[in-house]
Design a protein around this nucleic acid. Structure first.
Lengths: 367, 367
DNA sequence: TCTTCACCTGAAACCGCTTTCGCTTCTAGC
DNA sequence: GCTAGAAGCGAAAGCGGTTTCAGGTGAAGA
């Protein structure tokens, strides 16, 4: 098929350009790739011929010769139906990574690893000479496996200690959220956690418990899937069991949107009767009604930084970097001062967000 | 760097395996790639050696030799910040495409083409020997350009006549939406359109106008960006100018979520005072409060079908295929019969959706 | 005027895999 | 027992680039 491949595509190769320009392939390569190394007259001639022939260098051949593909892999160990379409978080990850790639010739490839084929897929991926991999949601075992084979990898969720990662301090973030509700005078602050087993969910639950303990309040917890239904059902159940609840912290905006629906459907008002704070600041937060006060995760920023670190390296970066989390005030739990509450505007993440003074500082750590 | 590339990576090649197994590279290749063409004893030996050495075939070298990369390109002519993170639609496209790729060794690559570099990028992409390209949101000019260079491409939005596309009949879909509001007894049905210039937005506007004319109702239109703010501001303005409005059709769920916020913030109830029908059935529809009645677009299905057509071909497929659109009933505009309205449940797209009898049939066309 | 050195340039050797082509060996049929 | 035919296998020629290495030219310095 070698022959066939060439014939069927019929695209001009570097040797065609060389022949037409009366130079060698080596010279064409130099003209195209390097600033120096060829005389001006030849440069212009080669460029002219290449343009005339419509020559496009083959990314594949180039990759084979240089030993580097211009791709960054985004990996999730989950069946694709569960995340990309269902959770706004991953769109933000991709958008952040792409923004760092703008103007580069590097591409983004996305991989959904089903459990049964995950290990083999990880091995195959690590064998590709890629720029690196972004682990958007990969189990610690598989993250370690990839790291051992390839190194060039950064996780965007809490992971095994050996694997480089960009993280947020979930515990501190939830403390800020609960402290905000407490400052509003709420004393029956419930929490809806994500599924146990998910490391982020676990950290956020720990944050809630520590905050509740700190304020001497009763723990009122429920658990649900990281989706609207999870939040909706958990909130309804919580209110049924504990009608005295006057505030809720919900571990993700998608769940929080569902919780708000359950609360208002039950005849209570948000935020007057029950104040709600979400987590993420995703699209779900601004689509909810009322719009959600939430902890903003700098997901795009993290993905962009991770991408840049993979591409260019970063002497400042050790194995861990923590990002600050902002409390974004909207109507589901507006600030104490009524003056700050612009009922009906609904959002404007820029204008009404405030960087919490108690957010953990961005810090580095190297094991 | 040829030398360097090999040394630095130090991964076993097919020749290493061949040497260790005492056979030729050709034989190893045959064992790995084809069912027949090698004796059983050699097969097992080669597999054993490959496993022992941790041999992983190089996708790049393979692509160069065969003339085919195992990638499908997803292309949008827009800066990435504007779509991936901001609009749930694109996550659904990716999820649909990925689901068709599950179990395959084909990958998804995503490309955000900024206007200034779009033409050059299209040329470079078309030169790659990919399986094909999914045009998620590409201008007709660039779509045509790609098609002329590469053929293997399918658009997921209305595009130039020469380019293959999977589409929904937006006009018919909006007629269904407006007819539903009319059936509920609403006679002041306003519309919030997407930005003019967008072909989908234009088609949906046409659908609204034709439906309104059909029922002999007054046209009450506003326009906004395809985002929450666009819907919110347009709805507020519409209600200010036309307080008599008792229903709204909104061209996308994200906008509709904003519209619902504006309506309730203005002191009116949804759906009692103003019924709302959105478009897409994206996450925004189920996060809104109340959840949105909306026109469900089979986006995942379309993306999956397009992917399969690119991979395997489809003798049934000509140049155009139209997909049916479903009316999904939720609380923002529940069905006429009160019995169908389960206040508080909020959704369950599966259970309470109904395939509209007036939806256009799926049809094929070849120019 | 002769050397030295810098700078271009082309030939050739890869990068790692696939596939063709031809040789050898084995099986089956007469 | 001999001949066809099939099947297994290896050598070698690509796929389309990049990079090394060596040769050739011209300018600068002695």
């Amino acid at each position: 098929m070698n022959q066939a491949a060439r014939v069927q595509r019929g695209k001009p190769t570097i040797r065609d350009v060389a022949r037409a320009a009366g130079v060698s392939a080596a010279t064409v390569s130099r003209v195209i790739n390097h600033e120096a190394g060829a005389s001006p007259s030849i440069r212009t001639r080669v460029h002219a011929v290449a343009a005339e022939l419509g020559y496009q260098p083959s990314a594949i051949a180039r990759a084979l010769a240089t030993g580097r593909t211009r791709t960054i892999e985004v990996i999730v160990t989950e069946s694709c139906t569960g995340w990309l379409g269902a959770h706004p978080h991953y769109g933000r990850v991709l958008a952040g990574a792409m923004s760092a790639l703008e103007g580069t010739d590097t591409q983004l490839r996305i991989h959904s690893l089903t459990p049964d084929r995950a290990a083999a897929a990880i091995d195959a991926l690590a064998a590709d000479a890629t720029v690196g991999a972004l682990l958007a949601n990969v189990t610690p075992e598989l993250a370690t496996r990839y790291y051992l084979r390839c190194r060039r990898v950064i996780s965007l969720v809490p992971t095994a200690p050996a694997v480089p990662a960009l993280e947020v301090d979930n515990v501190a973030a939830v403390r800020i959220a609960v402290a905000h509700l407490h400052r509003l005078g709420r004393r029956r602050i419930a929490a809806i956690h994500g599924p146990v087993g998910n490391s982020c969910a676990a950290q956020r639950r720990d944050g809630y418990r520590s905050a509740i303990a700190h304020f001497g309040l009763p723990e009122l917890s429920a658990e649900g899937g990281f989706n609207r239904e999870g939040g909706h059902d958990a909130a309804r159940e919580l209110l049924r069991r504990h009608p005295e609840i006057d505030a809720m912290f919900v571990a993700c905006d998608l769940m929080a949107a569902g919780a708000v629906q359950a609360i208002t459907a039950g005849g209570r008002r948000v935020p007057e009767d029950v104040a709600v704070v979400g987590f993420d600041d995703s699209i779900a937060a601004i689509c909810a009604n009322p719009p959600l006060t939430t902890m903003r995760l700098p997901v795009e920023q993290m993905a962009a930084d991770a991408t840049r670190i993979l591409m260019d390296g970063d002497p400042e970066f050790g194995f861990r970097r923590f990002y600050p989390v902002d409390l974004v005030l909207r109507e589901s739990a507006p600030d104490f001062s009524p003056a700050r509450l612009s009922r009906g505007a609904g959002s404007g993440a820029e204008s009404d967000s405030q960087r919490s003074a108690t957010a953990p500082p961005s810090r580095e750590s190297t094991p």
